[in-house]
Design a protein around this nucleic acid. Structure first.
Lengths: 204, 204
DNA sequence: CAAATATACTAAACAGTGTTTAGTATGTCA
DNA sequence: TGACATACTAAACACTGTTTAGTATATTTG
């Protein structure tokens, strides 16, 4: 029976089990289909028990967001290893878009949803993972500006320019606005646009 | 009483009343706070009555989306009147961002939410208003490319490059990612980034 | 005029949602 | 053995979108 099996599971592991269940449901049903009650039935506990391990749903979504950033880092390993700053920017851009297109639900949690942010606000925490990403991009921009002697460019403005472009592309693709405006080959369209933007900044 | 008052209202006007109520609730409580039941109590009918005038909630959100595009057009009048294509691109960009920042809920419905799009899919309709906007931008890009002799730029790629940048900026601002990464003066940051992008494309 | 039909509307239910409260077993310690 | 803490849950609260069956009222037809 469920009771006997559950007792075997270490008490401290339940938090991890809940997050595992949440992750599974997120991947299978999306953020809309992720509910406390579904998590509860998956781990074979009552919904109220979930609240003994997490303050509220926002906290669970925040933890999932952090998992999403770990997954994104895997997409970035090549970029992290790139020494040439301009090449690194290319690598970051491609990895970012690739991650966004392949992991809609994770991406949404990390860069669109306000629920993980509400938890950050409530607990007076910071958006560490997102800031780390942006700082890495900003530093890379600074290096690229120095190397190419683009003295009239500001690192954080350039970083934001790059970020907003890839963020916009991913969101337009995910909200199905792109497919409707330009049917078929949206992936090719995205990579062309990304290239065009990088060319407009660094070449000419 | 409610009954007497209601009878006076023309039957054909109820659909408009429902949309008016929906609009009010959207502006006051946001998309999260907009429910069929709240609309029903506002217009003093039962929730079931709403479904005699609209197929489902998605249809109501779709109609609100169309209202949003009408509002956006008001922000675009100056751009529509601009004859110089490069200046027109500047004008469109500024109007787009201004609209996005000032009308979060409308913007979300128009460019992020999948619910109005679900209705479009169900009814085999098109995203006419969005396509019209993108076509206008694409035509302007074509004119700018011709005028400046930028023969290695493709109009629809350039249009998408511009769109994704402003869309990204608006979304980053609205999801509070910008404020966390760069505290204070986010508005100035956005206008600087917008300028920087336009400079990188059209000057140098 | 009376009966049949069509219109406009609603009460109640269904199946969900996040969250809280009060209470129940079980285990530990004095 | 009694007191207390821990782990958990049933049930409720206040919501959500949507559907179904039924009720008045109005209109049309025989």
């Amino acid at each position: 029976m469920g009771l006997a099996e559950r007792k075997e599971r270490d008490k401290a592991e339940l938090k991890e089990l809940i997050l595992d269940a949440a992750k599974k449901i997120l991947l299978k049903n999306g953020q809309e289909g992720l509910s406390i009650r579904k998590i509860a039935t998956t781990v074979e506990y009552s919904p109220a028990t979930i609240y003994l391990y997490f303050k509220d749903k926002d906290e669970i979504l925040h933890e999932l967001m952090e998992m999403g950033f770990m997954l994104m880092n895997k997409y970035m390993v090549q970029a992290f290893g790139e020494t040439d700053p301009v090449k690194r920017i290319h690598s970051i851009g491609n990895a970012y878009v690739k991650f966004g297109l392949e992991n809609k639900d994770w991406y949404d949690l990390m860069f669109n949803s306000d629920k993980p942010m509400k938890h950050i606000e409530k607990c007076m925490e910071d958006w560490d993972e997102g800031m780390a990403m942006f700082n890495f991009l900003t530093i890379t921009c600074r290096e690229a500006i120095q190397q190419l002697g683009l003295k009239d460019l500001e690192d954080r403005i350039l970083a934001l320019q790059l970020w907003s472009c890839v963020h916009g592309l991913v969101n337009l693709a995910q909200s199905e606005r792109l497919e409707i405006v330009e049917r078929n080959q949206t992936k090719e369209l995205i990579s062309k646009t990304l290239d065009s933007m990088l060319v407009s900044i660094f070449k000419k």
